[in-house]
């Protein structure tokens, strides 16, 4: 059990998202940086689908109400356990009464904005429609369907066998699987249904210009600022299912990339879709930073997903080995 003692807005409980409820209008939710959440669970020996806390406003502090192993991943927030500084992407054991503090992300080497706190056994909130992720729009899932506030208490689930070993870490996938274009963080994009109906200038801008993440960007969508993207002629599309990653372009020409809390359907024209394998990169891009889109193919997009899966499998294998070698307590 942990108690939140300080939090900014919009820290939420998230897992890998809610599948299979789109037909009721329920979007997926889930961690914006799904690799960081999975890595935190791997460090603890948890199931990869276990829930953790996604933190995007700092400082953030929790008190441990019982002895508990935890992992911190995502943005490097200069974490400390009482006065012991912790490396980023690290698993540690805390004793009852200890306080974990996360500060403002340090972004010199990796410009990231969201941190994840995982607990041995996973954050135990009720499963709703198959997931523990917070559904902010529907006000269910997570803790009472809302962001966390000071005084909230979260329980850790039943501990996995062999878990509870601290003192090691993982190297962030942002460094192991880098992707940049013109010196800026990049994400790969597959053209979408209306791509061909955009002007040549729009195509050029999409692939060759930087896109600034505006302050109106959140878990629902990233509103980007750059050269306006115009259709050759206006079109109205009928509402249809969409997925996180879809780049919608409202009539003002400024694209909105749908993120994990996105609606499961929409009607704005779509110029492209950020591939699932790269959504975590966008999920970490801070407000005010600039990103680039890189055109990709189906085969490359599949290979990118497999590379992520391989990274996670290797992290899992080595973390399990290390935990097994050093810990039997």
């Amino acid at each position: 059990m942990i108690e939140i003692i300080a939090t900014g807005a919009l820290a939420t409980v998230q897992d890998h998202g809610r599948g299979g409820a789109l037909k009721w209008g329920v979007g997926a939710s889930g961690a914006l940086d799904n690799l960081a959440l999975a890595a935190g669970n791997i460090l603890l020996g948890n199931d990869e689908h276990a829930a953790g806390v996604e933190i995007q406003i700092f400082p953030f502090q929790v008190r441990f109400l019982e002895d508990c192993a935890f992992a911190i991943t995502g943005a490097d927030c200069g974490a400390s356990l009482d006065d012991l500084p912790l490396p980023p992407w690290w698993v540690q054991t805390a004793s009852v009464g200890q306080i974990l503090s996360l500060g403002i992300p340090r972004q010199r080497i990796w410009r990231a904005s969201r941190a994840y706190l995982c607990l041995a056994g996973g954050v135990d909130v009720p499963l709703v429609l198959g997931s523990r992720s917070t559904q902010l729009r529907g006000t269910f899932g997570g803790l009472e369907g809302r962001p966390l506030r000071s005084g909230d208490r979260l329980r850790a689930g039943a501990r996995a066998n062999g878990a509870g070993r601290g003192g090691f870490g993982l190297s962030p996938p942002a460094l192991d699987l880098p992707l940049t274009e013109g010196g800026l963080p990049a994400v790969r994009v597959l053209p979408a249904a209306e791509y061909a109906q955009y002007t040549e200038a729009a195509h050029q801008a999409l692939w060759n210009e930087p896109w600034r993440v505006t302050p109106q960007s959140d878990r629902y969508g990233y509103r980007l600022d750059g050269a306006p993207l115009h259709l050759i002629a206006p079109i109205e599309t009928r509402s249809h299912g969409i997925v996180p990653g879809v780049i919608q372009v409202p009539p003002n020409g400024q694209p909105i990339v749908q993120m994990r809390d996105a609606q499961p359907s929409g009607g704005y024209p779509k110029i492209g879709v950020v591939i699932e394998a790269d959504l975590w990169r966008l999920g970490q891009a801070p407000i005010g930073s600039r990103i680039r889109f890189r055109q990709t193919s189906w085969d490359e997009a599949i290979a990118a997903g497999e590379l992520n899966a391989r990274w996670l499998a290797e992290a899992r294998r080595l973390a399990d080995l290390y935990r097994g070698r050093t810990g039997s307590s």
Binding site: W89, L170, S171, E314
Partner: peptide, 16 residues
Amino acid sequence: QALGLLRIGPLLVPVI
């Protein structure tokens, strides 16, 4: 306290 790290693939192990 960690004096350095040993990196094995993505794993980081402290040198204590």
